[in-house]
């Protein structure tokens, strides 16, 4: 991979599968240099793609990742905190270790990347962070208390980071996809998905392209006044 000061660079977590892989490939097709990371190996083969395997909840491993990325580029135009884990269980039955695991990945992981990427995002002069949330937050879905609570925390981080990083010309927004056929919802029963879609203004299953469209919108230089915003797909709002 070769980059220079004019290269558009993106770092995305959870890049080995699902939405993360789709977004990484989409921006590679658009000519960006993409750094992806995940716990697992990547199947993306591209000259402008560099993959890193790590645990995003480890401050030491995240620090090493940024040190390694600096060997390729000094700046980042975009950071997408896509890695996340879901948990479906009645609140009363949710084990404590599930809470810790979900919050570690969804909240602590996002925290670490937003913090460690600051210097490289700042160097891009104008850059953007996109965090991933869920419609489980506005819909307050039963059986998803821990997952939704973790994403509520991500939304609050997003809005406060937007305020604090605004002075550095770094924007921070979040996307809350409605149900999409990815690994994350593979085990969710069909009737539950149907019920969820019934809450939407647009009663359809979303596609990965609906998400890349929104990512495009947030990353567009024309969106220079858009920060601290949470957008849910399907017409769901708080």
């Amino acid at each position: 991979m070769t980059t220079d000061a004019s290269s558009k660079t993106l770092l995305i977590t959870g890049a080995s599968k699902g939405l993360g892989k789709v977004i990484a490939e989409y921006y590679l097709d658009k000519g960006w240099s993409v750094f992806g990371c995940a716990r697992s190996e990547s199947q993306i083969e591209h000259d402008n793609y560099q993959h890193f395997q790590l645990d995003i909840t480890s401050p030491e491993q995240v620090a090493t990742l940024f040190k390694d990325i600096r060997k390729y580029t000094k700046h980042l135009n975009a950071l997408i905190n896509n890695a996340g884990i879901a948990s479906m269980n009645a609140f009363a039955l949710t084990p404590s270790h599930t809470f810790e695991k979900v919050f570690a990945t969804n909240v602590h992981g996002t925290f670490l990347f937003c913090q460690k990427a600051l210097g490289m995002l700042k160097r891009a002069n104008s850059s953007c962070i996109i965090n991933m949330t869920t419609v489980a937050v506005p819909l307050q879905l039963e059986g998803e208390a821990v997952y939704a609570a973790s994403k509520s925390a991500v939304e609050t981080l997003t809005q406060i980071i937007a305020k604090e990083y605004g002075v550095f010309n770094i924007r921070c927004n979040a996307i809350g996809p409605s149900p999409i056929q990815t690994n994350l919802i593979r085990s969710v029963p069909k009737d539950k998905i149907d019920k969820l879609i019934d809450h939407q203004a647009i009663k359809e299953m979303a596609t990965p392209e609906d998400v890349t469209n929104l990512v495009d919108f947030f990353l567009s230089p024309a969106s220079k006044m858009i920060t601290g915003q949470i957008i849910y797909l399907g017409g769901i709002s708080k």
Binding site: A63, K67, R70, K74, G119, M120, K122, R123, E164, V167
Partner: peptide, 21 residues
């Protein structure tokens, strides 16, 4: 205070350019 944060981040980045964390 935010100016200081931005300034210190720049100093840290410049040291990282020298491979010093």
């Amino acid at each position: 205070s935010m100016g200081l944060v931005g300034f210190l981040i720049d100093v840290e980045e410049l040291f990282l350019d020298e491979d010093i964390q």
